[in-house]
Amino acid sequence: MIRVQNITKRFGDYAALHGIDLEIQPGEFIALLGPSGSGKTTLLRIIAGLEFQDEGHVYFDGEDVSDIPVGRRKVGFVFQQYALFRHMTVADNVAFGLNVRKSKTRPKKAEIKARADELLRIVQLDGLGGRYPGQLSGGQRQRVALARALAIEPSLLLLDEPFGALDAKVRKDLRRWLRDLHKQMGLTSIFVTHDQEEALELADRVVVMDHGRIDQVGTPEEVYMEPATAFVSHFVGETNRLPDGRHVRPHDIAIVAEGGDAVAVDNVFRKGSAWRVEGRLADSNAIIEIDVDTNQVPPSVGQTVRIEARRSRTFAD
Protein backbone atom coordinates (compact mmCIF):
# COMPACT_ATOMS: atom_id res chain seq x y z
CA MET A 1 0.00 0.00 0.00
CA ILE A 2 1.18 3.50 -0.81
CA ARG A 3 0.42 6.16 1.78
CA VAL A 4 1.00 9.86 1.30
CA GLN A 5 0.66 11.84 4.50
CA ASN A 6 0.31 15.59 4.83
CA ILE A 7 2.63 16.40 1.90
CA THR A 8 3.43 20.09 1.47
CA LYS A 9 5.72 21.46 -1.21
CA ARG A 10 6.74 25.03 -2.01
CA PHE A 11 8.78 26.33 -4.93
CA GLY A 12 10.07 29.64 -3.62
CA ASP A 13 6.96 31.62 -2.71
CA TYR A 14 4.69 29.41 -4.75
CA ALA A 15 2.92 26.67 -2.78
CA ALA A 16 2.57 23.69 -5.11
CA LEU A 17 0.97 21.28 -2.65
CA HIS A 18 -0.88 21.89 0.61
CA GLY A 19 -1.11 18.99 3.07
CA ILE A 20 -1.94 16.16 0.66
CA ASP A 21 -3.21 12.87 2.14
CA LEU A 22 -3.79 9.85 -0.07
CA GLU A 23 -3.90 6.06 0.25
CA ILE A 24 -3.47 3.70 -2.68
CA GLN A 25 -4.29 -0.01 -2.43
CA PRO A 26 -2.08 -2.67 -4.05
CA GLY A 27 -2.95 -3.25 -7.70
CA GLU A 28 -4.99 -0.08 -8.05
CA PHE A 29 -4.87 2.07 -11.16
CA ILE A 30 -5.05 5.69 -10.02
CA ALA A 31 -5.43 8.87 -12.06
CA LEU A 32 -4.21 12.21 -10.74
CA LEU A 33 -6.51 14.55 -12.64
CA GLY A 34 -6.32 18.32 -12.69
CA PRO A 35 -5.56 21.39 -14.77
CA SER A 36 -1.98 22.63 -15.17
CA GLY A 37 -0.73 24.16 -11.95
CA SER A 38 -2.90 21.86 -9.83
CA GLY A 39 0.17 20.12 -8.39
CA LYS A 40 -0.55 16.69 -9.87
CA THR A 41 2.87 16.25 -11.50
CA THR A 42 4.65 17.52 -8.38
CA LEU A 43 2.77 14.94 -6.30
CA LEU A 44 3.75 12.19 -8.76
CA ARG A 45 7.39 13.26 -8.65
CA ILE A 46 7.38 13.31 -4.85
CA ILE A 47 5.95 9.80 -4.75
CA ALA A 48 8.72 8.78 -7.19
CA GLY A 49 11.47 10.45 -5.18
CA LEU A 50 12.44 12.79 -8.03
CA GLU A 51 11.35 15.72 -5.89
CA PHE A 52 11.29 16.02 -2.12
CA GLN A 53 8.47 17.37 0.03
CA ASP A 54 8.98 20.20 2.50
CA GLU A 55 6.68 18.53 5.00
CA GLY A 56 4.94 15.20 5.32
CA HIS A 57 5.79 11.57 4.63
CA VAL A 58 5.55 8.94 1.93
CA TYR A 59 5.14 5.29 2.97
CA PHE A 60 5.56 2.24 0.73
CA ASP A 61 4.03 -0.81 2.49
CA GLY A 62 4.42 0.87 5.86
CA GLU A 63 8.07 1.79 5.28
CA ASP A 64 8.88 5.50 5.44
CA VAL A 65 10.61 6.29 2.13
CA SER A 66 10.36 10.08 2.54
CA ASP A 67 14.12 10.63 2.30
CA ILE A 68 15.01 7.77 -0.04
CA PRO A 69 16.07 8.91 -3.54
CA VAL A 70 14.38 7.65 -6.67
CA GLY A 71 16.99 5.02 -7.51
CA ARG A 72 16.29 3.02 -4.36
CA ARG A 73 12.49 3.26 -4.32
CA LYS A 74 12.00 0.63 -7.03
CA VAL A 75 9.52 2.71 -8.97
CA GLY A 76 9.13 2.65 -12.72
CA PHE A 77 8.76 6.18 -14.05
CA VAL A 78 7.55 6.95 -17.56
CA PHE A 79 8.35 10.52 -18.58
CA GLN A 80 6.04 12.70 -20.58
CA GLN A 81 8.57 13.07 -23.41
CA TYR A 82 9.75 9.47 -22.77
CA ALA A 83 13.37 10.52 -22.09
CA LEU A 84 14.72 7.60 -24.11
CA PHE A 85 18.51 7.47 -24.42
CA ARG A 86 18.84 8.37 -28.09
CA HIS A 87 22.36 7.04 -28.58
CA MET A 88 21.35 3.56 -27.40
CA THR A 89 19.36 0.94 -29.26
CA VAL A 90 15.86 0.13 -28.08
CA ALA A 91 17.12 -3.11 -26.51
CA ASP A 92 19.92 -1.25 -24.66
CA ASN A 93 17.39 1.30 -23.43
CA VAL A 94 15.21 -1.46 -22.01
CA ALA A 95 18.20 -3.25 -20.48
CA PHE A 96 19.68 -0.07 -18.95
CA GLY A 97 18.22 -0.61 -15.47
CA LEU A 98 19.70 -4.11 -15.35
CA ASN A 99 23.07 -3.17 -16.85
CA VAL A 100 23.76 -0.48 -14.25
CA ARG A 101 23.29 -2.85 -11.31
CA LYS A 102 26.28 -3.73 -9.16
CA SER A 103 28.01 -6.86 -10.43
CA LYS A 104 26.73 -8.86 -7.43
CA THR A 105 23.06 -8.40 -8.33
CA ARG A 106 23.43 -7.95 -12.09
CA PRO A 107 21.98 -10.80 -14.15
CA LYS A 108 24.21 -12.50 -16.75
CA LYS A 109 24.44 -10.92 -20.20
CA ALA A 110 22.31 -13.62 -21.82
CA GLU A 111 19.73 -13.27 -19.07
CA ILE A 112 19.54 -9.49 -19.54
CA LYS A 113 19.10 -9.94 -23.26
CA ALA A 114 16.35 -12.52 -22.75
CA ARG A 115 14.60 -10.22 -20.29
CA ALA A 116 14.78 -7.25 -22.68
CA ASP A 117 13.40 -9.38 -25.51
CA GLU A 118 10.59 -10.60 -23.26
CA LEU A 119 9.65 -7.02 -22.31
CA LEU A 120 9.73 -5.90 -25.93
CA ARG A 121 7.37 -8.76 -26.71
CA ILE A 122 5.03 -7.64 -23.90
CA VAL A 123 4.90 -4.12 -25.32
CA GLN A 124 4.48 -5.55 -28.83
CA LEU A 125 7.77 -4.31 -30.22
CA ASP A 126 9.43 -7.69 -30.85
CA GLY A 127 12.12 -7.46 -33.48
CA LEU A 128 12.64 -3.70 -33.06
CA GLY A 129 15.34 -4.06 -30.38
CA GLY A 130 18.11 -3.07 -32.79
CA ARG A 131 16.51 0.23 -33.80
CA TYR A 132 17.29 3.61 -32.32
CA PRO A 133 14.58 5.70 -30.63
CA GLY A 134 14.80 8.26 -33.45
CA GLN A 135 13.59 5.59 -35.87
CA LEU A 136 10.37 4.86 -33.97
CA SER A 137 6.94 6.49 -33.98
CA GLY A 138 5.60 8.33 -30.95
CA GLY A 139 3.45 5.41 -29.82
CA GLN A 140 6.35 3.00 -30.18
CA ARG A 141 8.65 5.26 -28.16
CA GLN A 142 6.04 5.44 -25.45
CA ARG A 143 5.99 1.65 -25.24
CA VAL A 144 9.80 1.46 -25.15
CA ALA A 145 9.73 3.88 -22.21
CA LEU A 146 7.20 1.63 -20.52
CA ALA A 147 9.26 -1.52 -21.16
CA ARG A 148 12.35 0.22 -19.80
CA ALA A 149 10.50 1.18 -16.62
CA LEU A 150 9.13 -2.35 -16.19
CA ALA A 151 12.58 -3.92 -16.61
CA ILE A 152 13.60 -3.08 -13.05
CA GLU A 153 10.54 -4.99 -11.77
CA PRO A 154 9.13 -1.96 -9.99
CA SER A 155 6.63 -2.26 -7.17
CA LEU A 156 4.93 0.88 -8.43
CA LEU A 157 4.51 2.30 -11.92
CA LEU A 158 4.27 6.08 -12.35
CA LEU A 159 3.32 7.73 -15.63
CA ASP A 160 3.49 11.47 -16.28
CA GLU A 161 0.91 12.48 -18.93
CA PRO A 162 1.49 9.16 -20.69
CA PHE A 163 -0.56 10.03 -23.77
CA GLY A 164 0.08 13.76 -23.90
CA ALA A 165 2.45 13.75 -26.87
CA LEU A 166 0.43 11.42 -29.11
CA ASP A 167 -2.21 12.07 -31.73
CA ALA A 168 -5.84 11.19 -31.04
CA LYS A 169 -6.05 7.80 -32.76
CA VAL A 170 -2.79 6.41 -31.33
CA ARG A 171 -3.77 7.80 -27.96
CA LYS A 172 -6.99 5.83 -27.91
CA ASP A 173 -5.37 2.56 -28.97
CA LEU A 174 -2.59 2.95 -26.47
CA ARG A 175 -5.06 3.77 -23.72
CA ARG A 176 -6.97 0.56 -24.26
CA TRP A 177 -3.74 -1.38 -24.49
CA LEU A 178 -2.40 0.12 -21.24
CA ARG A 179 -5.62 -0.76 -19.42
CA ASP A 180 -5.34 -4.36 -20.58
CA LEU A 181 -1.68 -4.48 -19.61
CA HIS A 182 -2.53 -3.22 -16.15
CA LYS A 183 -5.21 -5.89 -15.81
CA GLN A 184 -2.71 -8.57 -16.81
CA MET A 185 0.13 -7.44 -14.58
CA GLY A 186 -1.80 -6.08 -11.61
CA LEU A 187 0.98 -3.57 -10.92
CA THR A 188 -0.01 -0.61 -8.72
CA SER A 189 0.02 2.34 -11.11
CA ILE A 190 -0.49 6.07 -10.89
CA PHE A 191 -0.78 8.33 -13.90
CA VAL A 192 -1.09 12.06 -14.25
CA THR A 193 -3.48 13.57 -16.77
CA HIS A 194 -5.38 16.75 -17.49
CA ASP A 195 -7.80 14.85 -19.72
CA GLN A 196 -10.91 13.82 -17.78
CA GLU A 197 -11.95 11.32 -20.45
CA GLU A 198 -8.63 9.52 -20.03
CA ALA A 199 -8.98 9.45 -16.26
CA LEU A 200 -12.57 8.19 -16.32
CA GLU A 201 -11.82 5.51 -18.88
CA LEU A 202 -8.65 4.08 -17.35
CA ALA A 203 -8.59 4.56 -13.63
CA ASP A 204 -10.03 2.49 -10.80
CA ARG A 205 -10.09 5.66 -8.76
CA VAL A 206 -9.64 9.28 -9.79
CA VAL A 207 -7.93 11.89 -7.61
CA VAL A 208 -9.17 15.31 -8.72
CA MET A 209 -6.74 18.09 -7.83
CA ASP A 210 -6.92 21.85 -7.98
CA HIS A 211 -4.53 24.51 -6.71
CA GLY A 212 -2.37 22.07 -4.79
CA ARG A 213 -5.25 20.38 -2.97
CA ILE A 214 -7.26 17.22 -3.48
CA ASP A 215 -10.90 18.09 -4.18
CA GLN A 216 -12.19 14.57 -4.41
CA VAL A 217 -11.06 10.95 -4.52
CA GLY A 218 -13.47 8.43 -5.92
CA THR A 219 -14.36 5.95 -8.62
CA PRO A 220 -14.98 7.47 -12.07
CA GLU A 221 -18.69 6.92 -11.42
CA GLU A 222 -18.53 8.81 -8.12
CA VAL A 223 -16.60 11.82 -9.32
CA TYR A 224 -18.86 12.15 -12.33
CA MET A 225 -22.19 11.49 -10.64
CA GLU A 226 -21.47 12.87 -7.16
CA PRO A 227 -18.94 15.68 -7.61
CA ALA A 228 -17.82 16.93 -4.23
CA THR A 229 -17.11 20.51 -5.26
CA ALA A 230 -18.12 22.98 -7.95
CA PHE A 231 -14.62 22.62 -9.41
CA VAL A 232 -14.98 18.84 -9.81
CA SER A 233 -18.40 19.27 -11.30
CA HIS A 234 -17.00 21.59 -13.96
CA PHE A 235 -13.70 19.85 -14.58
CA VAL A 236 -15.07 16.30 -14.79
CA GLY A 237 -17.77 16.35 -17.41
CA GLU A 238 -19.65 19.49 -18.42
CA THR A 239 -21.82 21.55 -16.14
CA ASN A 240 -24.18 24.50 -16.51
CA ARG A 241 -24.25 26.92 -13.67
CA LEU A 242 -27.73 28.36 -13.26
CA PRO A 243 -28.22 31.89 -11.91
CA ASP A 244 -29.69 30.47 -8.69
CA GLY A 245 -26.40 28.62 -8.02
CA ARG A 246 -27.50 25.15 -9.07
CA HIS A 247 -25.12 23.05 -11.22
CA VAL A 248 -26.72 20.92 -13.93
CA ARG A 249 -25.20 18.49 -16.47
CA PRO A 250 -26.27 19.11 -20.10
CA HIS A 251 -27.97 15.70 -20.24
CA ASP A 252 -29.88 16.41 -17.03
CA ILE A 253 -31.81 19.25 -18.65
CA ALA A 254 -35.18 18.49 -20.19
CA ILE A 255 -37.01 20.61 -22.72
CA VAL A 256 -40.57 20.96 -21.47
CA ALA A 257 -43.79 22.20 -22.99
CA GLU A 258 -44.56 24.72 -20.26
CA GLY A 259 -43.15 26.03 -16.99
CA GLY A 260 -39.39 26.16 -16.34
CA ASP A 261 -37.05 28.84 -17.69
CA ALA A 262 -37.00 30.31 -21.18
CA VAL A 263 -33.87 29.74 -23.30
CA ALA A 264 -33.16 31.39 -26.66
CA VAL A 265 -31.42 28.85 -28.90
CA ASP A 266 -28.20 30.15 -30.53
CA ASN A 267 -26.70 27.02 -32.00
CA VAL A 268 -27.54 23.36 -32.56
CA PHE A 269 -25.04 20.73 -33.64
CA ARG A 270 -24.38 17.04 -33.46
CA LYS A 271 -22.07 16.06 -30.61
CA GLY A 272 -21.33 12.36 -30.54
CA SER A 273 -24.54 10.50 -29.85
CA ALA A 274 -26.64 13.54 -28.91
CA TRP A 275 -27.74 16.92 -30.20
CA ARG A 276 -26.00 19.73 -28.44
CA VAL A 277 -28.18 22.77 -28.05
CA GLU A 278 -26.53 26.04 -27.00
CA GLY A 279 -28.59 28.96 -25.85
CA ARG A 280 -29.00 31.80 -23.40
CA LEU A 281 -31.30 32.09 -20.46
CA ALA A 282 -33.84 34.83 -21.23
CA ASP A 283 -33.57 36.39 -17.76
CA SER A 284 -29.83 36.43 -17.13
CA ASN A 285 -28.19 35.84 -20.52
CA ALA A 286 -26.21 32.96 -18.95
CA ILE A 287 -25.02 30.39 -21.51
CA ILE A 288 -26.80 27.06 -21.25
CA GLU A 289 -25.76 23.77 -22.90
CA ILE A 290 -28.38 21.09 -23.35
CA ASP A 291 -28.08 17.53 -24.70
CA VAL A 292 -31.07 16.25 -26.63
CA ASP A 293 -31.51 12.62 -27.59
CA THR A 294 -31.03 12.00 -31.29
CA ASN A 295 -34.36 10.19 -31.52
CA GLN A 296 -35.98 13.54 -30.76
CA VAL A 297 -36.23 16.53 -33.05
CA PRO A 298 -33.94 19.27 -31.70
CA PRO A 299 -35.17 22.85 -31.46
CA SER A 300 -34.09 25.14 -34.27
CA VAL A 301 -31.85 28.17 -34.01
CA GLY A 302 -33.70 31.33 -33.02
CA GLN A 303 -36.48 29.41 -31.31
CA THR A 304 -37.16 29.93 -27.61
CA VAL A 305 -37.60 26.74 -25.57
CA ARG A 306 -38.47 26.12 -21.94
CA ILE A 307 -36.16 23.98 -19.84
CA GLU A 308 -36.27 22.24 -16.51
CA ALA A 309 -33.40 20.67 -14.55
CA ARG A 310 -34.12 17.01 -13.79
CA ARG A 311 -31.06 16.66 -11.57
CA SER A 312 -29.04 19.42 -10.05
CA ARG A 313 -26.76 20.04 -7.13
CA THR A 314 -25.53 22.98 -5.15
CA PHE A 315 -22.10 23.44 -3.56
CA ALA A 316 -20.99 25.53 -0.67
CA ASP A 317 -18.52 28.04 -2.15
Partner: peptide, 21 residues
Protein backbone atom coordinates in the same frame (compact mmCIF):
# COMPACT_ATOMS: atom_id res chain seq x y z
CA UNK B 1 17.32 16.78 -17.18
CA UNK B 2 14.73 14.17 -18.11
CA UNK B 3 17.35 11.76 -19.42
CA UNK B 4 19.36 12.04 -16.21
CA UNK B 5 16.26 11.57 -14.07
CA UNK B 6 15.28 8.55 -16.14
CA UNK B 7 18.72 7.01 -15.59
CA UNK B 8 18.56 7.69 -11.84
CA UNK B 9 15.05 6.22 -11.61
CA UNK B 10 16.39 3.05 -13.25
CA UNK B 11 18.95 2.73 -10.45
CA UNK B 12 22.04 4.26 -12.07
CA UNK B 13 24.40 6.16 -9.76
CA UNK B 14 25.71 9.64 -10.51
CA UNK B 15 28.82 8.47 -12.30
CA UNK B 16 26.94 5.93 -14.46
CA UNK B 17 24.40 8.60 -15.34
CA UNK B 18 27.13 10.99 -16.40
CA UNK B 19 29.13 8.42 -18.32
CA UNK B 20 26.32 6.53 -20.07
CA UNK B 21 23.72 9.26 -20.53
Amino acid sequence: KDDEEAALSLGANGWQTFWHV
